[in-house]
């Protein structure tokens, strides 16, 4: 068997599929599906996996149907989409910044999206704690916030070029500011789902509805496809500006485009699940260990890993301490912070 399988669509798109990567993706797909079934079946009401399958294919008892379709499924889908978005966003950022420690939460993009979301909820709430505009605009607001912060951080870090160290430091500064502003807005404004706001900021998919799913799904699918199509530009970005230019790549234009995709992905995730931390940092690293650093395989693999991380964090959060719910963000931080420290240790001589 050959090592690579070339795939071509006429002249406009082609890439090499690594067989090892393909197999990894298949394995991950199976694992994700297993986790998905487990996640649907576990909870306050245990539903045996076979019954879960029955309900998913349109049968099953009425109570089981209700629990699965109204409560568990939307939440689980949101968890997976959010994980995918954050992981892809992290992979892009690590590619264009060329720093293994970059991720949307560490350089403040998640924080910016959070400020935008809280502002949106505060500005467009009425006295009855209901929104005066459609919630469909929420991801857009988050996207704008994320983008503004990304360019702010990038601009402030610019001094004859952007050094990764400066970028990360300034990102940390800006994300502290974003946290402060979010606290301020939560105190000042009448906020829709105010009681949840505090938990939401730690990152949770609690209370997701089918409405949320219908808004996030197209957003995520379009952007994830875009990320996948742009992955060959990412490969070039990672070689460094000079090399990429030499190979005929329009480095700056592509970098801005990729940055937009990354902030849009982060914005979509934050709009529905708050600041679930460290997923964007961890997933690409795990993926790199599995399939190497070519982005064609890296992006889908990190997306699967991101989905599994958030799904697992949410599953643990709602079952282990039942009937209480611990936000998924607590568990991603629980794994993520030590992982970050491990990365720091591994890159100690950089």
């Amino acid at each position: 068997m050959k090592k690579y399988l070339p795939i071509r669509f006429k002249n406009w798109f082609s890439f090499l599929l690594d067989w090892k990567a393909f197999l990894t993706i298949v394995v991950l797909l199976v694992l994700t599906l297993t986790l998905l079934i487990a996640s649907i079946s576990l909870g306050d009401m245990r539903i045996p996996p076979l019954d879960v399958m029955r309900v998913l294919f349109g049968g099953g008892e009425e109570t089981q149907q209700l629990v699965i379709t109204s409560f568990r499924l939307p939440r689980i889908i949101i968890a997976m989409l959010v994980g995918m978005c954050l992981a892809a966003a992290g992979a892009i950022l690590q590619g264009i910044i060329r720093n293994p420690l970059a991720s949307p939460d560490i350089i403040g993009i998640t924080g910016g999206a959070g400020v935008a979301v809280v502002t949106f909820l505060a500005v467009f709430s009425n006295e009855n704690n209901a929104l005066t505009v459609s919630i469909h605009w929420l991801p857009l607001a988050a996207f704008i916030g994320a983008t503004l912060v990304a360019f702010l951080v990038y601009g402030l870090a610019w001094k004859n070029g952007v050094s990764p160290v400066r970028l990360v430091l300034i990102g940390i500064g800006i994300s502290t500011l974003a946290q402060a502003l979010t606290t301020l807005l939560m105190i000042v404004g009448p906020i829709y789902r105010a009681s949840q706001a505090n938990i939401w900021l730690t990152g949770t998919v609690y209370g997701s509805t089918w409405d949320d799913v219908t808004i996030l799904t197209p957003w995520a699918l379009v952007l994830l496809t875009a990320t996948f199509l742009l992955s060959r530009n990412l490969n070039l970005q990672e070689l460094g500006d000079e090399m990429a230019k030499g190979l005929g790549s329009r480095v700056q234009v592509q970098r801005v485009g990729l940055l937009f995709v990354s902030t849009a992905l982060t914005g979509g995730a934050v709009a529905f699940a708050g600041g679930i931390g460290f997923v964007g940092l961890m997933s690409p690293h795990i993926a790199r260990n599995l399939v190497g650093s070519a982005f064609g395989a890296l992006i889908p693999v990190s997306a699967f890993i991101g989905a599994m991380l958030v799904l697992a964090a949410d599953l643990v959060g709602r079952t282990v301490f039942s009937p209480l719910e611990v936000p998924a963000g607590v568990f991603t931080a629980l794994i993520g912070a030590p992982y970050f420290i491990y990365l720091l240790f591994k890159n100690r001589n950089l």
Binding site: N198, T202, L324, E325, V326, P327, G329, V330, A333
Partner: peptide, 8 residues
Amino acid sequence: SFTQGLLV
């Protein structure tokens, strides 16, 4: 994050 978790 731990603090948030405990508070919840």
